[in-house]
Design a protein around this nucleic acid. Structure first.
Length: 677
RNA sequence: UGCCCGAUGGUGUAACUGGCAACACGUCUGGUUUUGGUCCAGAAGAGUCUAGGUUCGAGCCCUAGUCGGGCAACCA
């Protein structure tokens, strides 16, 4: 169990309640039911973590069930990727199931429904049937096929199965209620004819069950106790239950569908259809492009399973739709990588640095700690020599005292090496710096223990030795979309918000030689820059690193930024009109009698201040406030006092209101009324 | 216009099921630091969509409204 009983999410609560009400722990069973028509994304991770988490917390099995009822969209590639992603996340399913395993059972049950007069074959066109369905506000009309005799239905259905009819000619429908306010109950389709081979059943079937007819029955076959899905299936629950009613054996466990809100992430899209569009339009390089919110994309980007699970955990499960800010995801990966990534040095935008008083032919091997967060993480060697690369932005010819980096005449520390001082610069004809000349304090080597090495200097720079550096390609990623919620706009399609600069490739970065031996899945922190991981495109003679996420950068925040797409939007408040002074007063007053001490005083202050902006017309309607609402009456009294002071003449209404206040049993009101009357 | 969900700081979630709103992210201070990272200390920020009602007491219950989302695929 997680944290006792205190902080269960509402789904966990439902399970806990069911347990309390008698269903045995042994009969708990869950499932994760993806359709193999795309890659899993971070939104699915929520469902995976929820279902498998429920399994772990209750020692209950969790099945992986591929909901493969539509051969037109589904492929083996997706089955493989889904299994791969779930395993990578660290979850183990009890059984690998397929809805297609139950095609025969589903067919037999369908026959039974026909025999019971609960299903019929319809031979009308899709358009006609849609028309007969009616609208949410007007009832539908019965199909002329609705009362076909059972034998005829049986014969037609068998012919459908035997491939005697073309696609689109016939369907099997449940006979429920064409006038139901729930459109899904207006004789929904159970089967359609599809002459398409299935990735598992081949051409054995040419009729395929619809989602509603298959899902609940599959849960039932597997004896899943809690069938958890996303909110858009809520209206399907009625149908889910209706179908179950037709086939259920009362001695067996009856699955229960419950729904939670799907998770959205800011600055991306989260539907398989839209992700597919990004892939097919070549906007991204594939499903595992590091900019994609897919599990495989995040993995390639350098995210860890732990970080994704952590993200799911802190995001929570509810029924309200929301957009979680990417900063939360980034926090989760930084937290993990800070603890686990090996510290190295790499220069992305190099400028040459020459140490005037360092011997030209000398190479020293200096010691670099692997990870300061881990006690015995060990160290590795970094070669040091006369000519180095440092980051171009780490030098300014002159700068104010806020700039801790290298300037002419100022000292900085080279990480794990020496303290140096800027002496002069070389520039090309365009004024661009081509080399920086420094002097080095040869006594100041890190770890040497000398007095000079202990000196405190404000700045520390990362560097690589030019002679020893390894050239590498670095891929930096920015958000894929410029809009916080790109698919929430009615007039514009999400593709219009694509960020043209979401990928930045640095062809000539230089990294320390230690990285030559990096392998896929290794996680590094390029010190002062960010977290990086080796990309699968990397070769021994051509290293490619993906930037997972930058380090938090409080220096960048101080800098004036020109074209930052990020704008703190106040979306949440746009729905609410700005509150008027009077309603503000009402709000504060409401709680007035619950307050005491400082809080009471400040509430009073606030009311008096707000009252300055209130007119008599605002206040007058509130004289009628129920006697019980003492707080509001006090607030009104205080505000009235301000008005009177400002010259408002007393009238009968006012007199009456004050009088009533004076006679009120509540002391605070009493006092207030006496003050002004 | 029918039915179904939902509404708590900028964001995401809590609130022991009715007892004066908590946690995390983010933001801002300050300290430590051979990473302007980490870590540590602290601060600001909502009175719980609105209006009624029930109650000694409501973010939690009831009613009405407002706003947001979903539902009429031979998709899942």
């Amino acid at each position: 169990m997680k944290e006792g009983y205190n902080s269960l999410n509402f789904i966990e609560q439902i399970v806990a309640d069911d347990l309390k009400e008698g269903i045995s722990q042994k009969s708990l069973r869950f499932r994760f039911p993806p359709e193999p028509n795309g890659y899993l994304h971070i939104g699915h991770a929520a469902s995976i973590c929820l279902n498998f988490g429920l399994g772990e917390d209750n020692q209950a099995p969790v099945n992986l069930r591929f909901d493969d009822t539509n051969p037109i969209k589904e492929e083996q590639e997706f089955v493989d990727s889904i299994k791969n992603d779930i395993e990578w996340l660290g979850f183990k399913w009890a059984k690998e199931c397929y809805t297609s395993d139950y095609f025969q059972q589903l067919y037999d049950w369908a026959i039974q429904l026909i025999k019971d007069g609960k299903a019929y074959v319809d031979g009308q066109s899709a358009a006609l049937m849609a028309e007969q369905k009616g609208t949410p506000t007007t009832p539908g009309k019965a199909s002329p096929y609705r009362d076909t005799p059972v034998e005829e239905n049986l014969r037609l259905f068998e012919e459908m199965k035997d491939g005697k009819h073309a696609e689109g000619t016939y369907v099997l429908r449940a006979k429920i209620d064409m006038a139901s306010p729930n459109m899904l109950m207006r004789d929904p389709l159970m089967y359609r004819i599809l002459n398409k081979p299935h990735h598992r059943t081949g051409s054995e079937w040419c009729i395929y069950p619809m989602y509603d007819w298959a899902h609940g029955q599959s849960d039932y076959v597997e004896q899943v106790s809690h069938s958890i899905c996303t909110l858009e299936f809520k209206p399907h629950r009625e149908l889910y239950d209706w179908f179950l009613d037709q086939i259920i054996d009362p001695d067996k466990l009856r699955p229960k569908q419950r729904e939670f809100a799907r998770r959205n992430l800011s600055y991306t899209v989260m539907s398989k259809r839209k992700l597919l569009e990004l892939v097919q339009s070549k906007t991204v390089a594939g499903w595992d492009d590091p900019r994609m919110p897919t599990i495989s994309g995040l993995r390639r980007r350098g995210y860890t399973p732990e970080s994704i699970r952590k993200f799911s955990e802190v995001s929570g499960i509810t029924k309200r739709d929301s957009v979680t800010d990417v900063s939360l995801l980034e926090y989760c990966i930084r937290e993990d990588l800070n603890k686990n990534a090996t510290r190295v040095m790499g220069v992305l935008d190099p400028v040459k640095l020459i140490l005037g008083n360092y011997p030209a032919d000398k190479t020293e091997m200096l010691i670099a700690e692997n990870n300061p967060e881990i006690e015995n993480s060990g160290s590795h060697e970094v070669p040091f020599s006369k000519e180095l690369y440092i980051e171009r932005e780490d030098f300014k010819e002159e700068a104010n005292s806020k700039y801790f980096r290298l300037t002419l005449g100022k000292e900085v520390r080279l990480k794990n090496a020496y303290i140096i001082k800027g002496e002069s610069v070389e520039k090309d004809v365009n004024g661009r710096i081509t080399a920086i000349h420094c002097s080095v304090d040869l006594d100041s080597r890190s770890g040497s223990g000398t007095e000079a090495s202990m000196r405190k200097v404000k700045g520390t720079l990362h560097w690589v030795s030019i002679e020893h550096a390894v050239k590498a390609e670095i891929r930096e990623y920015d958000r894929l979309f410029l809009d916080e919620a790109p698919d929430s706009h009615e007039e514009k399609g999400f593709m219009e918000f694509i960020n043209p600069d979401s990928l930045n490739i640095v062809k000539e970065a230089y990294v320390e030689p230690f990285l030559q031996s990096a392998s896929i899945d290794d996680k590094f922190q390029f010190q002062r820059v960010g977290y990086f991981t080796l990309d699968k495109d990397s070769k021994a003679d051509h290293l490619v690193f993906n930037k997972t996420v930058g380090l938090k950068d409080s220096w960048a925040k101080q800098q004036p930024k020109d074209n930052q797409p990020k704008q703190q939007s106040n979306k949440g408040q746009q729905n609410q009109p700005k509150r008027s002074a009077i309603s503000e007063i009402q709000k504060i007053s409401k709680k007035y009698t619950n307050l005491s001490g400082d809080k009471l005083e400040s509430a009073k202050e606030n009311i008096l201040q707000l009252a300055e902006e209130v007119t008599y017309e605002d206040l007058q309607p509130l004289f009628n406030t129920a006697a019980k609402k003492v707080g509001t009456r006090i607030g009104v009294t205080l505000a009235l006092g301000v008005l009177l002071k400002k010259g408002q003449a007393k009238n009968d209404e006012i007199e009456q209101f004050i009088e009533a206040g004076k006679n009120d049993p509540n002391e605070l009101l009493n006092e207030a009324a006496k003050m002004i009357g």
